Amino acid sequence: MRNQSVERNFIIKGRRQRRRRWLFVTSLLIILTIILCCAMLYFGNTIYPVNVVLRSLMGEEIVGANFAVNMIRLPRMITGLFAGFSFGAAGYIFQTMFRNPLANPNILGITSGSSVAAVFCITVLHSSNTVVSVASVIGGITTVIIMYFLSRGRTFSVGRIIIIGIGMQAMLDAAISYLILKSGQQDIAGALRWLSGSLNGSKMSEVSPLIIVVVIFTPILLILGKQLSMLELGEQTATSLGVHTDKMRMILIVSSVIMIAVATATTGPIAFISFLAGPIANRLVGVSAQNILPAGFVGAIIVLFADIIGQFAFEYRYPVGVISGIFGAPYLIYLLIRMNRKGEL
């Protein structure tokens, strides 16, 4: 009896420690996100005093500052914040649910599906930004539907869906290359700019759908965090615990894909954010299916920081997707080497 009491106290103590660590790290991530948001409002071709930036945000008419802060920097900052959060949180859902760090929207071809639709609209149909955004969302969702039907079997297989996703990505990337090669010179620049993933030209009217999607689907993902932790234990274990695995998996996938697709439609496919955010959050907080918020803020931090670096650290300005790709590619190589040594590949 005494041993049971000691064991129970030990479990409660460990749970409290993990909870305190989660709160501490998440608070630090939120603070760092706020600092980077402020930096994006402050820095630019012209550095305005802090009081001028604040007065402009409050609606006071200040020549020059009002346009720079409210029309350029604020939409850019909000777009980076919500797109980074979407990429980070949704990527973490995929990696946790499929129990594989390679199972993220970039590797599985979801962002490539969005990109094919967007490039087709840009180079063939010469569509407006609104049509490109809608087509991008439809392309991402369609890719997931096709992957789901191709991976169906008697039982769910993580390996099967990852292999199919990698194949889909290769095929879709080839389609993108074909569209660019066949497009006119006047369309190539726009397509490549979209494909690089950029916050340039962000507008409040275009980021509104992304904000709405994040506000709606983030609570859904948080509510389903317990079911996600059970899915992480495996198909049979989750079923024995009373989880309707197919239903929960479908809800999680649809919610995550919509967030990814709308974020991609807004900024283009920013490389490696959904790939990096989850593992970094797990390292900081500890492995848990409740790391959706930390992963989202890590994604936002990477996007905001990469955009600041791309804008001000070099002689020429680079899109955020180029900088995040520089960060992410070495990590992908490291991860593949580590998985190969453990016999996971």
Rank of each mutant, 00 (worst) to 15 (best):
M1W: 12
E7C: 10
F10R: 14
F10N: 13
I11P: 03
R19L: 15
R20K: 13
T26P: 05
S27A: 13
L28R: 05
L29S: 01
I30G: 09
T33M: 10
T33V: 08
I35D: 02
C38W: 14
A39H: 06
M40A: 10
T46D: 11
Y48K: 07
N51E: 13
E60I: 07
E60W: 07
N66F: 12
F67I: 15
F67N: 12
R73Y: 03
R73H: 06
I78P: 03
T79A: 13
T79L: 11
G80C: 03
F82D: 00
A83E: 01
F85L: 10
S86R: 01
F87E: 00
G88I: 02
I93F: 08
F94E: 06
A103V: 07
G109W: 08
I110G: 00
S112G: 03
G113S: 06
A117L: 06
I122W: 00
V124A: 08
H126D: 10
S127N: 08
S127A: 15
T130R: 10
V132P: 01
V132S: 04
S133I: 01
A135D: 02
V137G: 04
G139P: 08
I141A: 11
T143R: 08
V144D: 02
V144E: 02
I145D: 02
M147S: 12
R154L: 10
T155K: 14
S157L: 07
S157G: 05
I162K: 03
I164Y: 06
G165D: 06
M168K: 05
M168L: 14
Q169H: 13
A175D: 03
Y178N: 11
L181E: 08
Q186K: 12
D187I: 02
A189P: 00
L195N: 09
S196Q: 11
S196K: 09
G197D: 01
S198E: 05
N200H: 11
E206A: 13
V214R: 04
I220W: 09
I223D: 08
Q227G: 15
E235G: 07
E235R: 11
Q236Y: 13
T237K: 13
T237Y: 09
S240C: 12
L241E: 06
K247L: 15
M248Q: 13
M250S: 14
I260M: 10
A271P: 07
I273N: 00
G278M: 05
I280D: 00
S288A: 11
G299K: 01
A300V: 01
I301C: 07
I302S: 00
A306K: 05
I308P: 01
Q311T: 12
Q311R: 15
A313I: 08
F314S: 07
Y318S: 02
P319C: 03
Y331G: 05
Y331A: 04
